[in-house]
C-alpha cells in the first residue's frame, strides 16, 4: 500500500476552449488533513469532481486510494465520502429521510442511532420530520454536513463545507473531523475561502489559481515563502487582488427562476 492517499499527475480538464484545470500535480498522504485553496473559478470544484468519479479528466493520472476514479469508479466510490459545495439534498423529503436514504446508499450499519446522534450534533433533531424545503440556508448546510459524516470513509472530501455556517457549527464540525482523523486515520481533503480555517486545520495546503497550482506546503511554509504574516496575505500575494467572475451556471439560473415563481405565488 502506497503512502499516498491521493496521487495526481498532470491532471487537465478542458471545457471546450476553457482549461479549468491545467496540468496539476499533487499528492495527499494517508491520514493527512489537506486544504485546497483558490479564488472563485480557480478549478477547485472541478478537481474534486474528477477525484470523486463525477467528471472525466481530459488528460493526466489520478489515483485515489491506489485506484483510478475513471476505470474503477465503484471501488473508488466505496472509499470516499463527500460534502458538496452546492445543495444535494432532496428538499421534498424530511431531514430524517434524507439521512436514511444516505444510510441505505452507503450501507451504514446500525444507522438509526447514528442518524439521531448526528442530527442532534447539528441541532436539527427537533426538526427531523420537517421537509427540507422549509429549512433556511444554514440549516440545509448543517444537514448536508451531518449526512456527509454518517458513514466513516477512508477519505472525506469537503467542498467549501463551512460556507454560511455559524462559528459554533463550524467548530463542532472540525472537532468531529479531527477526531475521525485521529481515531480512524481518515484523510480529509477540503476547500475553503476562509484562510484562517485552512491555517488552523490543515497540515498541508495547495493554492490553485487559473487552473494551476501556485503554492504548496505546510501553512507555515507557504506564509514564509511570501514573507507574509497571515495565510490570507500570502494567498493575496500569490493570487492577486482582482475579483474573479464566475459564470452563473444553469442551476443558478433555474434557482432564480424558481424563486420568481414562488414569490409570485405568495
Amino acid at each position: 500500500m502506497s503512502d499516498a492517499m491521493i496521487e495526481v499527475i498532470d491532471l487537465t480538464k478542458k471545457f471546450g476552449d476553457v482549461t479549468a484545470v491545467d496540468a496539476v500535480s499533487f499528492s495527499v498522504k494517508r491520514g493527512e488533513i489537506f486544504a485546497f485553496l483558490g479564488p472563485n473559478g480557480a478549478g477547485k470544484s472541478t478537481t474534486i469532481k474528477m477525484l470523486t468519479t463525477l467528471l472525466r479528466p481530459t488528460s493526466g493520472t489520478i489515483r485515489v486510494n491506489g485506484l483510478d476514479p475513471h476505470k474503477q469508479a465503484l471501488a473508488v466510490r466505496r472509499s470516499f465520502g463527500i460534502v458538496f459545495q452546492d445543495p444535494s439534498l432532496d428538499d421534498q423529503l424530511t431531514a430524517q429521510e434524507n439521512m436514511e436514504i444516505h444510510g441505505a446508499l452507503y450501507k451504514v450499519k446500525d444507522a438509526k442511532p447514528k442518524i439521531e446522534r448526528l442530527l442532534k450534533f447539528v441541532d436539527l433533531y427537533d426538526r427531523r420530520k420537517t421537509q427540507v424545503q422549509k429549512f433556511s440556508g444554514g440549516m440545509k448546510r448543517r444537514l448536508e454536513i451531518a449526512r456527509g459524516l454518517l458513514h466513516h470513509p477512508t477519505i472525506i472530501f469537503l467542498d467549501e463545507p463551512t460556507l454560511g455556517l455559524d462559528p459554533q457549527t463550524r467548530n463542532q464540525m472540525w472537532a468531529y473531523l479531527h477526531e475521525m482523523n485521529k481515531n480512524e486515520g481518515t484523510t480529509v481533503f477540503f476547500t475553503t475561502h476562509y484562510m484562517e480555517e485552512a491555517d488552523r486545520n490543515a497540515q498541508r495546503i495547495a493554492i490553485i489559481d487559473n487552473g494551476k497550482i501556485v503554492a504548496m506546503g505546510s501553512p507555515a511554509e507557504v506564509k514564509q515563502s511570501q514573507n507574509a504574516e497571515t495565510l490570507e496575505d500570502a494567498f493575496l500575494a500569490l493570487t492577486g487582488h482582482s475579483i474573479r467572475e464566475e459564470d452563473a451556471s444553469s442551476t443558478d439560473r433555474m434557482r432564480t427562476m424558481m424563486r420568481g415563481f414562488q414569490n409570485r405565488r405568495r
Binding site: L54, L74, R77, P87, L89, I101, H102, L105, T251
Partner: peptide
C-alpha cells in the same frame, strides 16, 4: 430536476451500482 437541484449528485457519488 434532480440534476438541477443537486440530489442527483448524492446518488452518483454513492458506492452503489
Amino acid at each position: 430536476w434532480d440534476r438541477q437541484f443537486g440530489f442527483l449528485k448524492e446518488t452518483l457519488a454513492a458506492p452503489v451500482s
